[in-house]
């Protein structure tokens, strides 16, 4: 009997609280963001659409090392190495199938040159799935992206035109094999 009365009081009380909250929300401003009229703030390191960036000197950064491709958990990156006249390695083609990409950022993590970067642009809607396949010309931007100033070729020991042996960072002049000095 007493238990029944206590239950009744408690239930009434919770009903009143519910009522109060409903009334409160009815008169408070809405949480919904009016996307796309209203754009959310996304930090620069947000992981979405992938780009290929360029060296500070404007040349392609990617050296087609294939690390991004092998790091990709869904295997949606494919490329082929080739070499330019001046000795740089670069991708003959570079393809990302965004309809497979899970925006995990593993490729960016793996890239030794900062060439491949994820951007905050997540707006990739297409009616035709084949439009989700991006080739190098769709991926390559004109700048350095998030990492200005870095050039892999300045640290690598390989010669490219304009950078001879011994001219990379931390490199001594090429040795003179014929030297007899101790």
């Amino acid at each position: 009997m007493i238990k029944g009365i206590l239950d009744l009081i408690r239930n009434t009380f919770t009903q009143l609280i519910t009522l109060k909250m409903v009334l409160h929300h009815t008169f408070s401003p809405p949480d919904t963001v009016q996307y796309p009229e209203q754009m959310p703030y996304l930090p620069p390191r947000y992981r979405a659409r992938i780009i290929l960036t360029r060296d500070p000197d404007g040349e392609e950064r990617c050296v087609s090392c294939n690390l991004c491709a092998v790091a990709c958990p869904v295997d949606c990156i494919v490329l082929q190495k080739t070499e330019s006249e001046d000795g740089r390695w670069y991708p003959e083609f570079f393809r990302i199938n965004f309809s497979r990409c899970v925006m995990c950022g593993m490729c960016e993590e793996a890239c030794p040159t900062y060439a491949i970067q994820l951007t905050p642009d997540f707006e990739m809607c297409e009616y035709d799935r084949s439009n989700m396949v991006y080739e190098k010309e769709h991926l390559l931007i004109d700048g350095c992206g998030k990492y200005p100033g870095y050039s892999f070729w300045n640290v690598s020991g390989k010669t490219i035109s304009g950078k001879d042996k011994g001219e990379a960072e931390n490199e001594a002049e090429p040795v003179d094999v014929r030297s007899l000095m101790p």
């Binding site: 295997d75 490329l79 393809r95 799935r129």
Partner: peptide
């Protein structure tokens, strides 16, 4: 077992 690019290899031809 870690061959790469399987879902992009022919994506230029067929999805």
């Amino acid at each position: 077992h870690r061959a790469s690019g399987r879902t992009a290899m022919v994506a230029d031809v067929t999805m």
